[in-house]
Simulated assay, not measured.
Amino acid sequence: MFVAALVCDLLLPAEVGSLKGKRSVVRPLIADLRRLEVAVGETGHQDLHRRAEVSVAVVSATAGRCEEVLDAAERLVASRPEVQLLAAHRLLRSDSDD
């Protein structure tokens, strides 16, 4: 069994001037990511208007499948014109890791 995570650091548009405006950008992104059948949530920068951290997690029998799903998630985030992907970090662990 493999567990993988993708952490995306995002910059939101200048016109996002409130937490309500931030939600209007982040919620649809999270909804689209959930269509990939992953666990996803906003995991950082909750108090900043123009920054967001969104994390994706997947569990699979193979490392290759985890990578495929994370690749698709990263492409989806990067393709969104309303956000700028500043950084993406990955973590992959297996049940045999110490």
Rank of each mutant, 00 (worst) to 15 (best):
V25G: 00
D98M: 09
A14I: 10
R50N: 03
A61F: 09
L10S: 02
E42L: 07
R93S: 08
L36F: 13
Q84R: 09
R27C: 08
R90C: 10
D98V: 12
A61H: 08
G41L: 09
E37T: 05
H89Y: 13
C8H: 00
D95H: 07
H45S: 12
C8F: 01
M1R: 13
L70E: 01
V58L: 05
H45Y: 15
Q84D: 12
L19I: 07
L91C: 03
E42V: 04
V38R: 02
R23N: 07
D98Q: 09
R34E: 14
P13G: 08
L91I: 04
R23I: 04
D9G: 00
A61W: 02
T43G: 05
C66A: 14
D95P: 01
A5L: 11
V25A: 06
L85W: 03
A72W: 05
V56R: 03
R34P: 03
A14N: 01
S60L: 02
A31D: 13
E74N: 11
R90F: 08
R51L: 14
E42H: 14
D9A: 10
R93P: 01
S94E: 01
E82I: 07
V3M: 10
A73R: 03
V3E: 02
L29N: 04
A5V: 02
G44Q: 06
L91N: 00
S18E: 02
R27L: 13
R50T: 08
V7T: 13
R90P: 03
R80T: 08
S96K: 11
Q84H: 12
V83I: 10
F2H: 10
R75A: 15
L6R: 02
D98G: 14
V16M: 05
S60A: 15
K22P: 01
L91K: 00
S24F: 07
V56Y: 09
R50Q: 15
A88H: 05
F2S: 01
S55M: 14
E37P: 01
V54P: 05
E74P: 11
A14W: 10
A57H: 05
A52I: 11
V7L: 07
A14P: 00
S18A: 03
D98L: 15
E68A: 14
R93M: 11
A61Y: 05
M1N: 14
R50P: 00
